[in-house]
Nucleic acid binder design. Sequence first.
DNA 1: TAATTATTGCGAATAAATCGCATTTACATG
DNA 2: CATGTAAATGCGATTTATTCGCAATAATTA
Lengths: 125, 125
Amino acid sequence: MERRNTPTKQAVLELLVKSGKAMSREAIEKEITQNINRATIYRVLNRFCEDDVLHRIVAEDGKQYFAVCVNCYDKVLSGHHFHFRCVKCDTIECLPIAVEFSISNSYQVDNVNCVLSGTCKDCSV
Amino acid sequence: MERRNTPTKQAVLELLVKSGKAMSREAIEKEITQNINRATIYRVLNRFCEDDVLHRIVAEDGKQYFAVCVNCYDKVLSGHHFHFRCVKCDTIECLPIAVEFSISNSYQVDNVNCVLSGTCKDCSV
DNA sequence: TAATTATTGCGAATAAATCGCATTTACATG
DNA sequence: CATGTAAATGCGATTTATTCGCAATAATTA
Ligand SMILES: [Mn+2]
Ligand SMILES: [Mn+2]
Ligand SMILES: [Zn+2]
Ligand SMILES: [Zn+2]
């Protein structure tokens, strides 16, 4: 199952890099110039997650959002971090705030999903 | 919109108290003895959340889970706390681990949803 | 007991995400 | 450059969680 380079993949990744935020399939489909099928967008996003190019956030609206995994300038974002979902502008941003907890090692933690929600700084006028 | 007491509400709440865990509509419908309609279960759960009798957790499976709000013996559970979802036994438990973060007050945080997932202590043999 | 209206049941409607399958296309190889 | 293989895509159908509209039922209060 080798990966191939396609215009679709490039466009989706470019958009996510440019936006700098986590986007839903809906938002991607709305903002992208190309005409890409709904199922294809999901498949592209899922493959990127498998390859650790993107990470997936599930918000309290039950929807999936996807963001590029940055790990250069900000160490905290390479690990588990909080996310903030603004219910007004419906965007999710990766916060540079690490998620910290200590739990008995009888639990095996495979995944961490932390989302704060409310009104973001741009919308809270 | 005054609330009325009904067998249905009682049964749902009793089950959630007894289980001591967060349950999905599906799990509730499966374990409850009464025959309660699907939509009714959701409505009962949503009303309990409005009244702060239950709290709602949205897991990375995109589903909603509901748990009683305990705030007696364990103070931490009265505030925001982590949850753990076991992908093997498909239960969610409220962890007595407080969620801590500091964020610029230009953000208005209305809701906190933090879920760890993996294998719980009972299933990790 | 009767009136009011919250609650319920039922079926249809929404909406997110996935699936099956035929078709297209990226890419390696000769 | 031509060609074979399998990855990627498009399309429509499907699955699944949750909600909605509306008529029927039942809790509560007077
Ligand atoms: Mn992130
Ligand atoms: Mn909880
Ligand atoms: Zn905003
Ligand atoms: Zn378990």
